[in-house]
Amino acid sequence: MRKKKRNDLKEAAIGAFFFTSGILAVLVLIGIFLTLLATAVPAFREIPVGKFFGHSRWDPTSPEKAEYGLLSMIASTLLVTAGALLLAVPIGIAVAAYLSDVAPWRVREVLKPVVEILAGIPSVVVGFLGLVLFGPALARLFHTANGLNALNGSILLAVMSLPTIISISEDSLNAVPKAYSEASLALGASRWQTLVRVKLPAALSGIVAAVMLGLGRAIGETMTVLMATGNARSFPRGLLSSVRTMTADIAIELGEAPYFTTHYYALFAIGLVLFVMTFAVNLAADVVLRRYQERER
């Protein structure tokens, strides 16, 4: 009897511990959001919202007139991210398909850990490669004066988001029930037809989620783009122009902005815009992933 009581107590304690741990992440997220919101909102006492999102010149420390137009940086961030996805999605899905369907067991056992190690390379190292290796190569390839441009950033971000895309896509391809491909093969379809027409559609929502998580990674990455894209403030004129992303701007200016000034609040407002963007992307990925899991059940 006493033993049972003690066990109940233990159960309750363990239950409470896990509940607090679970709720902690939520509390931290809410806390960060509220802090960000509280520090970002005062920016709009002095900067009209329309100007913040509609103007393209950003120069808070200008000796002539401080300007707070975020448009070029939003465009630059989207440009670099879109470029990264254009490169990473086809390659990522191809590698995932290769790993799950084509590669012999031995190759797979080597390749998968290698892809995962790729995720562990520090972003400064990737950025440095962009500065001294990809930059000059791109300049030669496109006959431009230098390679510090959006394309360079896109390539590096593609490299950095590949592990996420490959690994989750591969998992979802593997989760397609064996019966699907067996049925397809039994009907006389080739392995290529089975992969493209049966397995990929079946795994589509998992792949979409993988792409979205990769996208979130790409939008939020800072150091790499800071080093490789040149950080010019002008509105991007294409993949070969030098661009400044929102993350790079925060990293450049936050250290120097005096506390509790419009500039300081404005940088938090950029942070809020980024937070909302990545949050929306992650939420969308989550919804897609959930729908996929429900269907499989």
Binding site: R57, D59, L148, M227, G230, A232, S234, S242, R244
Partner: peptide, 27 residues
């Protein structure tokens, strides 16, 4: 005391400026 050109590449330190110039004939 006038604005810099918006096309200026803003590098993360002296050494990176030197790296950029070494690669770029119009720099």
């Amino acid at each position: 005391n006038k604005n810099y050109s918006a096309d200026m590449k803003e590098m993360n330190g002296n050494a990176q400026i030197v790296e950029g110039i070494l690669q770029d004939e119009g720099a």
